[in-house]
Amino acid sequence: MPQDLPPQGGYEAVQYRRNIPTRGLRPVWYLVGMLGVMTYGWRQVFLGQREKTEMAREKMWARIHLTPLLQAEEDRDQVRRYYADLKREKELLGSQSGPYNSERFVRPTYAATPARTVE
């Protein structure tokens, strides 16, 4: 019986690798893109911090410049309240000048202290 022999010129090469076409960009371009995005983000963080610092400085100077005005308003309010209290007290007590103008109030007496001698 004759033996099977390969065909004339041999068999075709066996394709053992998958020939899949590459899709997308090369990995280095993804790295460049991420680096660009991160650079932009850090720049925005830096500018935001600078603006935050500037706003805090502006707020501090505004408070410094407004302090005398606010203090004057507070002083005016205290004076107004003081005179309103005096008026209310005069209406309540009449001719008496204060709450200690009565016989019930006893003025404190102070003990005499010996004179100090200087040597």
Rank of each mutant, 00 (worst) to 15 (best):
A84W: 06
P99G: 04
R43L: 11
T109H: 04
R116G: 07
R81N: 05
D75P: 00
G36D: 00
L5Q: 07
V28P: 00
Y16V: 14
K52L: 11
L86G: 02
E58L: 12
W61T: 09
V79I: 09
S95D: 15
Y83A: 01
A13Y: 05
Q78D: 10
F105P: 03
L47Q: 13
G9A: 06
Q49Y: 09
N19T: 02
R50L: 11
V32Y: 14
L66I: 02
Q96W: 13
T67S: 09
Y110V: 04
Y110I: 03
S102D: 15
I20F: 07
P99M: 07
L31E: 15
V106Y: 03
G94I: 02
D85L: 07
P6I: 00
L5E: 14
A72E: 15
T39I: 04
P99S: 14
M38A: 11
T22A: 15
V32F: 14
D77A: 11
M38V: 08
W42S: 13
N19I: 01
V79S: 06
V28Q: 15
Q44H: 06
R80N: 06
R116Q: 12
V28M: 08
Y11L: 15
L86F: 01
V106N: 08
Q71K: 14
W42T: 12
Y100R: 04
L25S: 10
E91Y: 03
G10C: 01
P2T: 05
D4L: 09
E73Q: 10
D85W: 10
G24M: 01
E74H: 04
E74T: 08
G48P: 00
F46C: 08
L92Y: 10
P99W: 13
A112W: 11
R88M: 12
P68E: 09
I64N: 07
A56W: 05
G9Q: 08
M1N: 05
S102H: 13
P99K: 11
V14F: 13
G33F: 03
E58S: 08
G36I: 04
A112T: 12
T53P: 02
F46Q: 11
L35A: 13
D75M: 02
R17P: 00
T67Y: 12
Y30V: 05
G41A: 15
E74Q: 11
E91C: 05
P6W: 01
T67F: 13
R43I: 03
V28D: 13
T22S: 14
G94L: 00
P108L: 09
P114S: 02
D4W: 08
R81L: 07
K87L: 07
Q96K: 12
R104L: 11
Q44T: 09
R43N: 13
R104G: 15
F46E: 15
M1F: 03
Y30W: 06
W61H: 09
Y40L: 14
L35S: 12
A56F: 03
A56S: 06
Y82E: 11
